[in-house]
């Protein structure tokens, strides 16, 4: 019995010290982690949005889709006037897990740029969706009148060679975002900072 108490005591002490140590490290690193995450989001926004002088990471409009999932639209403003918006879209139809992208739209309804935020596709195949060769074909395309599909499905875009599934997932995520944008364009445009 005494032996058991000693074992339990030591194990408890061990966990207690570990817990204290971790809570201290967490308190030290939580601010830099939040800062790094914000810098990362701002860098992605800067890459896909037209020129802006506001803070698009906090100037947002949240629009729920049919299933109630909120879509966050980041608004870019230049001297107070609406300059464009960007949304983050996640596709679950990637080859290896979810693909998260950030899509920027200008005020006249054309795509400004697309960034891949997170993906776990096969290196050298599906992972090439992150390369400019694939992403640059979206810039300057108007949302209306463009078929947001890969060429294999009679769309307007080249798929990455031997990675149709990954390419299709990116376009599928973009298309869903554009549908929300079409429905709520006025809400986004008329939003106030």
């Amino acid at each position: 019995m005494k032996e058991l108490a000693r074992l339990v005591g030591i194990l408890t002490l061990c966990c207690l010290i570990a817990g204290l140590l971790l809570s201290w490290v967490n308190s030290v690193t939580s601010a830099p982690i939040a800062e790094a995450a914000r810098a990362e989001q701002l860098a992605a926004l800067k890459a896909v949005l037209p020129e802006y002088d506001n803070q698009p990471d906090i100037d947002i409009v949240s629009i729920p889709d049919e299933s109630g999932t909120p879509w966050i639209f980041h608004i870019a403003r230049k001297s107070g006037a609406y300059a464009g918006c960007a949304f983050k879209a996640v596709s679950s139809q990637g080859y290896a897990g979810d693909i998260a992208i950030m899509v920027g739209i200008t005020a006249d309804g054309t795509v400004q740029g697309v960034e891949v935020l997170a993906q776990k596709e096969t290196p050298g195949l599906g992972a090439r969706i992150t390369e400019p060769a694939f992403r640059s074909q979206f810039a300057g395309k108007p949302i209306e009148g463009t078929i947001w599909k890969v060429r294999k499905e009679q769309g307007n875009f080249d798929q990455v060679t031997a990675a149709t599934i990954s390419s299709r997932a990116v376009l599928e995520a973009m298309d869903r975002g554009f549908n929300i944008y079409r429905l709520k364009e006025s809400t986004i445009r008329e939003s106030k900072p």
Partner: peptide, 9 residues
């Protein structure tokens, strides 16, 4: 994990 997330994101 925490340190890397904070300083080598």
């Amino acid at each position: 994990d925490l340190l890397m997330n904070a300083f080598a994101h």
